[in-house]
Computed example of a mutant assay.
Amino acid sequence: MTPERLEECLTIMRWSPETLAEALGCDVSLVEAWLTEEAEIPPKTAAWIDTVAQFMETADGMKPKGLKGKRFSAQ
């Protein structure tokens, strides 16, 4: 996985590097090293990130459309 693809996945997932680090149980400095090509993303980690991004992209397409701007109002 390239740093560009990692950045794209983070955008699709709506995750920050901090959120990814928390999900993986690593320090954010490792994620930042992946983003700057200072460290290589392990293949299994890259596959997991890509799978999560693909899932989020699919799920986003199934999101209900009629809720935008709606609020709860107690009567």
Rank of each mutant, 00 (worst) to 15 (best):
S73P: 02
M1T: 08
S29L: 01
G25H: 03
P43R: 02
V31L: 04
E57F: 08
A59H: 04
K65W: 10
L20E: 06
A23M: 07
V28P: 00
P17C: 08
I12K: 11
R71A: 11
T58D: 13
A33C: 04
A53K: 00
R71G: 07
T19E: 10
A59G: 01
T2W: 07
S29F: 01
P3R: 06
E38V: 03
E37D: 14
G61E: 06
L20P: 09
T36L: 10
R71Y: 14
A21T: 01
A23P: 00
S73V: 14
E37F: 09
A33S: 09
K65S: 13
P3I: 00
D60W: 05
G69D: 15
C26E: 13
P42C: 06
S29G: 05
M62P: 00
W34G: 00
L35E: 02
E37L: 10
E4H: 10
F72H: 09
L6Y: 03
G25P: 01
G66E: 15
K65I: 11
L67C: 05
G66H: 13
L20H: 11
T11R: 11
E7V: 11
C26L: 12
V52G: 06
G69W: 10
P64V: 05
L30A: 11
V31S: 06
R14M: 15
Q54G: 13
S16D: 06
Q54M: 13
V31Q: 08
A46R: 03
P64A: 07
G61S: 09
R14W: 13
Q75F: 06
M13Q: 03
K63S: 14
A23V: 03
A46Y: 02
I41P: 01
F55H: 14
A53R: 03
S16H: 05
T19C: 05
F55N: 14
K70Q: 12
T51C: 07
S29N: 05
K68Q: 12
I12P: 02
Q75N: 10
E57Q: 10
E57R: 13
R5Y: 04
E32V: 07
T45W: 03
E32Q: 14
G25L: 00
L35F: 02
A21N: 00
R14C: 14
G69S: 12
A39G: 00
A33G: 03
W48L: 10
A39N: 06
A74H: 07
Q54K: 15
L24H: 09
G66F: 15
P42S: 05
